[in-house]
């Protein structure tokens, strides 16, 4: 083991929630420089982000139909959620979606990133090909494509017919519709894959070289260099995909035509917010729904950060 490799093997553990704790001894604060560096973001926060966010927070305590003057109603909107079946339906749909599609997508992305990292001719072609679905993303065309695959006469049923099974219309069946959206999400694993690839590229080559000189085996290098140094990126992808899946909207909007059907089986939480805000003009309730989502995501993210000190390893 080289010194470099050993240096990397510091056990992950220093407890922290944000980025690394100020652990450098006796260094003076760099507050002025930091605020100078952050000034674009600070300006944006104050002018573009915070005001609308605070406005929506205020609106969540009001009755506001977009044209009217907001009327303060206290916690009415939040109380209403308790008895709102569709709120619960959307919560169930979204939770299942997050729980299933995030791990699946990440595993796919990581495996393919490792396969496509190096060692084969023409890898860049594969990378581009596998990334193509993510480029299409959530364009209106996806609705047409998905129907060609999962519709009554779609590809899946044609394949099933070959082995004598009469398939259902997967998009119109409340038991399977959400799964077609999960597959859609996994299909676009290209985005986390690219981030993983970038993370793999970031690992200094010298570490491998030094380890090789010391006669470390491939498996050992993978376990002791690749995996630990990739954990910040795995963590990032986990957070990003979790937040992104909680906020998933366009897939369901495009494929169900904005209804979240059949029978609310694809009523994503944000789709419900959208229906309340843009179709029902119930902006107060929509804002309350949005802030509840924010709280839920914040709790889950905080949990991820707390757990991260047990498995995420930082080079700093």
């Amino acid at each position: 083991m080289t010194a470099a490799l050993r240096a990397k093997e510091r056990p992950p553990g220093s407890p922290s929630v944000g980025p690394s704790p100020p652990r450098r001894r006796g260094r003076r604060s760099q507050g002025l420089a930091a605020h100078a560096f952050m000034s674009p973001w600070l300006i944006g926060l104050v002018l573009v982000t915070a005001a609308p966010m605070l406005a929506s927070l205020y609106l969540s305590f009001t009755d506001y139909n977009i044209m009217s003057t907001p009327t303060f109603v206290g916690f009415d909107n939040f109380e209403r959620m308790v008895g709102d079946e569709r709120f619960w339906a959307s919560t169930r749909v979204t939770s299942l979606y997050v729980l299933v599609s995030v791990p699946l997508q990440l595993v796919f992305a990581l495996m393919l990133a490792l396969v496509l990292d190096r060692g084969l001719r023409g890898l860049s072609i594969y990378r581009s090909a596998y990334y193509l679905p993510s480029l299409l993303g959530t364009s209106v065309a996806v609705a047409v494509l998905w129907k060609q695959i999962f519709g009554h006469d779609g590809l899946v049923n044609q394949a099933l017919a070959l082995i004598g099974i009469q398939g259902t219309n997967w998009l119109q069946n409340p038991d399977s519709a959400l799964w077609t959206l999960i597959i859609l999400n996994v299909w676009t694993f290209g985005s986390p894959m690219v981030i993983f690839l970038a993370g793999l590229r970031q690992i200094p080559e010298e570490l491998y070289e030094a380890a090789r000189v010391d006669g470390a085996s491939q498996i050992r290098m993978f376990r002791h260099i690749t995996i630990p140094l990739l954990t910040p990126i795995v963590f990032f992808n986990l957070i990003l995909q979790t937040i992104g899946s909680f906020q998933a909207f366009t897939q369901a909007h495009v494929i169900s035509g904005g209804t979240g059907g059949p029978v609310d089986s694809t009523l994503f939480y944000t789709l419900y917010i959208y229906q309340q805000a843009f179709v029902n003009f119930d902006m107060g309730y929509a804002s309350a729904l949005a802030w509840v989502l924010l709280l839920a995501i914040a709790v889950i993210t905080a949990l991820h950060f707390t757990l991260s000190k047990y498995w995420v390893f930082y080079g700093d």
Binding site: P52, A55, S56, I66, I243, I273, S287, L293
Partner: peptide, 14 residues
């Protein structure tokens, strides 16, 4: 992190 958590539909109108 929090600014990424609020769904876009809540802030787009303001």
């Amino acid at each position: 992190l929090v600014t990424v958590m609020l769904p876009m539909h809540a802030v787009v109108i303001p």
